[in-house]
Structures are given as C-alpha cells and as structure tokens.
Amino acid sequence: MKKQILTTQNLAIGYQTSKQKTTLCKAIDLQIFSGEVLCLLGRNGAGKSTLLKTLAKLLLPLSGSLFVEQTSFSELSNIHFAKKISVVLTDRLPENSLTVYQTIALGRQPYTNWAGKLTPFDEKQINKAIHLTDIKNILDKNTSELSDGQLQRVMIARALAQDTPIILLDEPTSHLDIHHKLNIFRILKNISQETQKTILISTHEINLALKYADRLLLMHQQTLHLGTIKDQQTQQVLMNIFNSDLIRFDVATHQFIF
C-alpha cells in the first residue's frame, strides 16, 4: 500500500527580498507517495532548485503549506525534520579534512548524542548506505581526492545514512559522463526499491528520467505538472518544454530524439 508522504497545498515558490518578490512557480498541489522515484524536469531557471530547496526547508515558501507525513513543516523541529528529509545538493563542499567514512557518518547527526558518538545501530546504517552506493573501496580517502562520480555517490550515501523516508537530489548527474549518469540513476532506483524511500531527482537528463522515473514533475511557465509518461497530458507538457527544431519527442518509444 502506498502511503502519502509529502504534500503541498497551494504552494508558491520563489525569492523574496525586502524590495521585491520573484515568483517562480505557483499553485503547486503535490501528493507524493512512499517508494516513488520522481524526476523533476524543466528548463534552466524554471525554479527546479528553488522547489527542491523549499521542499528541503532550506528556503521558505512564498505562500502555501507543506506537509511531511501529514505534519506541517512549521511544526517540526530542525532535528525532527532532519529525520524526514535528506538532501544531495549541488553545493561545492568546503575544504575539509574529512574522509569518505566521516562524511557519511555525519549523516547520522540527527540521531547521535551531544558528542556525535556512533552506536552499533548507527554503524549498521552507515554500512548499509556504503553497500547500496558501492563505495567500500574509497572509505579512507579524503573527499577532496575523489572524482565527481565518486563524490556524488558519497553524498548519496550520506543522505542514505540520514535514514529519511524522503531523499531530494539536485542535479546529481551534472558533470558526469554517460556511464556514471546511468550508474547514479540505477543506484537511486535500486535504493527506492530496496528501502521504500521516496526519491525526488531534479535533472536535465530527459531520457534517463523517462526511463527510471515512476512519475515526472514538469516545471513550465510558472506551473508544475505531475504525471506518468503514459499520460497524454504529460507528454504534451514535455513537448511544450523541450520541443524545438533541434529535438523531438517520440511518442512511440517515449524518448527524446536529438
């Protein structure tokens, strides 16, 4: 049975400064279920990152309300929220001397005591994350020594170690070659099947998204459309977003052709 895990009601997202308000997308009503893989597609600047950051409580919504497992975002303390939603961001990691293992272990922070001491259960969760992302052989390396593909898997492992029902990923495959792109999508799909976690990926990899996502979130002209690729309407919105003289959506194969 699918449980409704993330809900938004009449949500508007964007940026607000003291002088002006920039609305990127409004009237967002989402109902997201456990165990789903969702891909968020949209052109550059459509507000994909803003939506993810709003869902991760890193940005405040302009209006509307958000619920995780029926509890309003504003009612959850920082620690409780950290046990619900974890993130993989595009932020560059600052210079630090953390090893891969230490970076992943930081994901256990919402559960550890004041000293951050890892219990056997914490270590079990960390090892599970390491296993799912297949990074056993680089645990002692410093995060600054990793390739982009390795670093991305480490950050996914860190989010997994945080053991949240929802993981949000902001363009996890940018800077990666096609081999690593496929690998990341395969890992994420595998995670959602094995752990029943909800995974929301913002991406520009249209064809990979069409292949791996259970449902698509399409951002276009300040509105958000949610549906499966089999929907006529979803296909129509997709074509509106990306169709141009240069690329074409092939309805028969459900793939974009360049």
Partner: peptide
C-alpha cells in the same frame, strides 16, 4: 564542515 545547507538539512540550528 559540509557547508551551511547540508548542516541545516542535518538538523543544525
């Protein structure tokens, strides 16, 4: 050490 956004997402005030 992972940056402000990650710290916040891990429950840091």
């Amino acid at each position: 050490l992972l940056g402000e956004n990650y710290a916040k997402s891990m429950g840091v005030n």
